[in-house]
């Protein structure tokens, strides 16, 4: 295990965050505050409670997930895409590092950044609403698992992408609708049966549901199912990763 190299990549990536502190921290805080003002105040005045939880509190886990998903995918994909784009990837590829170590460095940094922003959102949210976390440990498990899984997802996108358009395709075009339609801002049980069924095909629903359960013990589906879904997704990504290691796909070809 080349610990020095993992450390070098991790710290290098974290240093990049420090340089773009404003963009990476301040902007999610502002947008979350806006969500609270717009959804919390406007919608919240009509829907007071969902399943006995105040509307503002109800949307908090979904907001954290929205941020976590977009941040982790964004960081994970950019971290590996950028050296590919500038050409500095030559150095990573010619160093005595295994693919596993490369993934540890990049995905570790992306997940750390995502989680930092997620925690900031949590802190911001607690300024607006009363929050209690019923199962802090479960909450942490969902939080970390999601961060790691989606950073890895981002990493794979970064390897696959040939240009900036492809790079942004999934984080910009696929993730937001999934999050918005995944019951971030409402309970899916409020929808007509047909749309309920459609919503259950959305994997993000399971993430939000499980995460929300750890806060309020209310959920659309059993938290175990949520756990199973995220582990399943992680397993699929790992499979793809192993295939990339074997073939050198878009890295060593």
């Amino acid at each position: 295990m080349n610990v020095e190299a993992v450390k070098a990549i991790y710290l290098f990536e974290m240093a990049r965050t420090r340089r773009t502190l404003l963009q990476s921290v301040v902007s999610p805080v502002i947008s979350t505050s806006l969500y609270f003002i717009v959804f919390g105040a406007a919608v919240g005045s009509r829907i007071q409670e969902i399943d006995g939880v105040s509307y503002g509190a109800f949307i908090t886990p979904g907001l954290i997930m929205l941020t976590l998903l977009t941040q982790c995918i964004g960081n994970g994909s950019f971290g590996i895409y950028f050296p590919k784009f500038t050409g500095t990837i030559y150095e990573i590829l010619s160093s005595p590092i295994s693919m596993t170590e490369i993934v540890l460095g990049y995905v570790g940094a992306a997940a750390t950044k995502g989680m930092l922003v997620g925690l900031i959102i949590l802190a911001t949210a607690s300024l607006f609403v009363d929050l209690s976390i019923a199962h802090p440990f479960v909450m942490l498990v969902f939080f970390v698992l999601t961060a790691v899984t989606f950073s890895l997802f981002g990493f794979l996108i970064g390897i696959w992408a040939k240009d900036f358009e492809q790079l942004n395709l999934i984080p910009m075009l696929v993730i937001p609708p999934l999050v918005f339609l995944g019951g971030s801002f409402y309970s899916v049980s409020m929808l007509p049966p047909f749309w309920q069924a459609v919503s259950h095909a959305n994997p993000v629903l399971y993430l939000i549901s499980g995460f929300r359960w750890s806060f309020f013990e209310i959920s659309e589906v059993s938290p175990l199912v949520s756990f199973g879904i995220i582990i399943g997704f992680l397993a699929v990504l790992m499979g793809v990763l192993v295939w990339i290691f074997r073939t050198g796909y878009r890295l060593r070809n």
Binding site: E4, A5, K7, F12, A15
Partner: peptide, 13 residues
Amino acid sequence: NTVSFSRGLHGKK
């Protein structure tokens, strides 16, 4: 930083 980074990548303290 960039030169130190290269050294780290090669597993050297």
